[in-house]
């Protein structure tokens, strides 16, 4: 669930921004926005059991696997909703607005 939250954060807001001199312009949590508690949707977690055969007892580390699919899932959902292909991150409201406007023009 933590991984899903992190993935959603990367998908919808987290980005390292630099000025023209390659100086980081959002070096603090004041300007680099994380998903906060309460902004998250309800997460539904289920496990696809797939033993790792070369590990003791078939154990598999699952930390952060939840991150990987989330940005793409969000992009698919927003692309369908906005009617425009969104194939980049972060998908902020402004980014979706710009993409839609680009299509209209």
């Amino acid at each position: 669930m933590g991984g899903m939250c992190m993935g959603l954060g990367y998908g919808c807001r987290e980005a390292s921004l630099y000025d023209s001199g390659a100086v980081r312009i959002n070096p603090q949590f004041r300007t680099y926005h994380l998903m906060r508690f309460g902004e998250n949707p309800e997460y539904l977690v289920d496990f696809v059991e797939n033993p790792q055969i070369d590990a003791p007892y078939g154990m598999r580390g699952i930390g952060e696997h939840g991150i990987i699919g989330m940005p793409a899932a969000l992009a698919n959902a927003l692309s369908a909703a906005a009617g425009v292909d969104l194939d980049f991150t972060p998908l902020t409201p402004e980014a979706v607005w710009q993409a839609k406007r680009g299509k209209q023009q």
Binding site: C12, H33, E39, T92, P93
Partner: peptide, 14 residues
């Protein structure tokens, strides 16, 4: 905010 509308009491910080 950049991440959307904020309700009251504030449910989104920024």
């Amino acid at each position: 905010t950049a991440n959307g509308k904020v309700k009251y009491p504030q449910d989104r910080i920024g």
